[in-house]
Amino acid sequence: MKQSEGIRFYPEKNLPRDENSAVKYTLLGLLVILISLVVSTLSSLITYQLALREFTAQQTLQNSTRREENTKTGTDSGPIFIAGSDDLAVRNLKEVQNITEFVHTLEHELEARVNASLLGNEMKIERYVESKIKDRVEQIGSNTASSQCNLTSEKVKALLDLQGLLESKVQLLRELNRTRVDSLFASKVLSSVAVNRINSYFEDRNIVPKQITLLYRGSQQGFSAKSFHAKCDNRGPTLVVVRSKADNDNPRGQVFGGYTTAEWQMQHANKIGSKDDFLFSLEWKEALSIQQTGNAIKTAEHMGPQFGVNPELKLGHECHKETSENSLSKLGSKSATFQTPSSGETSFVRGPTGYFVCDEYEVYSVRL
């Protein structure tokens, strides 16, 4: 029996003849979809640009009309409409300029206040800044209401941010002022509380020291009149601080002193001071202002610093010795150069005589 011939398959020949055409049709379809998307996107962009151009033209016309109206009424506030700022769409350029001027003014005032203070009382400065900003926000709110403009969030934010910026500046100025009085903080007589007290005396008199420098310290230079004059004569305004030795009437000693614009010299003379001269004691809140500027200080070769003619405060030669009775304080007489304490005290030290022994005293140059 003859074997039948099998059927032979030729896969490559049995595929559809239009396979290449199908692939081409698929690619063409995708291309058509892509072109449609591009056309749609371009159409949307063109529509957006046309709408934006129309909107801008309308805003320009409105601004021009409003400026003409403001010019006629004399209220040229110059508002500008900004697209995309939602419900707070108005920014008043004139107010922004006013804010800038306000910032500069406040900075100058702030710097003056800080420079007028040795420590720049931080809490006081912060309260001052807060009150100024609050007043300014209220003022801007009133101004914008009158010109039919909204107080924008940008303006409020600028003012609130201003406080942080100025507080940073306060801190820098505070550190700067602290470096100017480093020697006071190194005092053997004054605590930081005492420095604050003396600072308040300067502030009350609008005295702004640029530099305070230690000239003389008794325990280092020897307490002699000669050493005092060698270090302190002809040095301009000075601050003298004294601590008396403890005794039965003054168990912890007393801290007191004075400031004068007159210069120390060796010649025997009464020297003219100024209205800024004062005496002080840490026992009392207020300083004693000068009453007779012609007798602010007395100078002589044989003694240290002396304030007033009574004398209200006198430091003698070698005033640290127990045997020397040449350091004296007498307050409150009719001829007194300085005011009488409101407490009625007659001396910086307690006791019947007003004499004291000096435990330490320092003299500082105060450069104005």
Rank of each mutant, 00 (worst) to 15 (best):
T65N: 12
T65P: 00
T65I: 04
T65R: 15
T65W: 02
R66W: 08
R67A: 12
R67T: 09
R67F: 12
R67Y: 09
R67D: 04
E68V: 10
E68N: 06
E68L: 12
E68K: 11
E69D: 12
N70E: 09
N70A: 13
N70H: 08
N70I: 03
N70R: 07
T71C: 08
K72R: 11
K72P: 01
T73K: 15
G74F: 00
G74K: 15
G74L: 01
T75G: 02
T75W: 01
T75V: 07
D76A: 02
D76S: 04
S77P: 01
S77C: 03
S77R: 04
S77V: 00
G78H: 03
G78T: 09
G78V: 04
P79Q: 08
P79Y: 02
P79A: 00
P79H: 06
I80P: 04
I80E: 09
I80D: 04
I80S: 06
F81C: 02
F81S: 07
F81V: 13
F81L: 11
I82A: 07
I82N: 10
I82G: 05
I82D: 01
I82T: 11
A83M: 02
A83H: 02
A83Y: 05
A83T: 10
A83N: 03
A83K: 00
S85F: 05
S85M: 04
S85D: 05
S85R: 09
D86E: 12
D86N: 08
D86T: 03
D87W: 06
D87T: 08
D87I: 00
D87C: 00
D87K: 10
D87M: 01
D87L: 00
D87E: 12
D87Q: 10
L88Q: 13
L88R: 13
A89P: 03
V90S: 10
V90F: 05
V90K: 10
V90W: 04
R91I: 06
R91Q: 11
R91H: 09
R91N: 12
N92H: 06
L93G: 05
L93H: 08
L93P: 05
L93K: 13
K94T: 04
K94A: 00
K94L: 00
E95C: 11
E95A: 14
E95I: 15
V96N: 05
V96H: 02
V96W: 01
Q97Y: 14
Q97N: 13
Q97S: 11
N98R: 14
N98L: 07
I99P: 07
T100Q: 15
T100S: 12
T100A: 12
E101G: 08
E101W: 03
E101K: 08
E101N: 12
E101A: 11
F102Y: 14
F102W: 11
F102Q: 04
F102S: 04
F102H: 09
V103A: 14
V103Y: 14
V103I: 15
V103W: 08
V103H: 15
V103G: 10
V103L: 10
H104M: 15
H104L: 15
H104F: 14
H104T: 15
T105K: 15
T105D: 05
T105E: 06
T105F: 05
L106P: 13
L106D: 07
L106Y: 10
E107K: 07
E107F: 06
E107T: 13
E107R: 11
H108F: 10
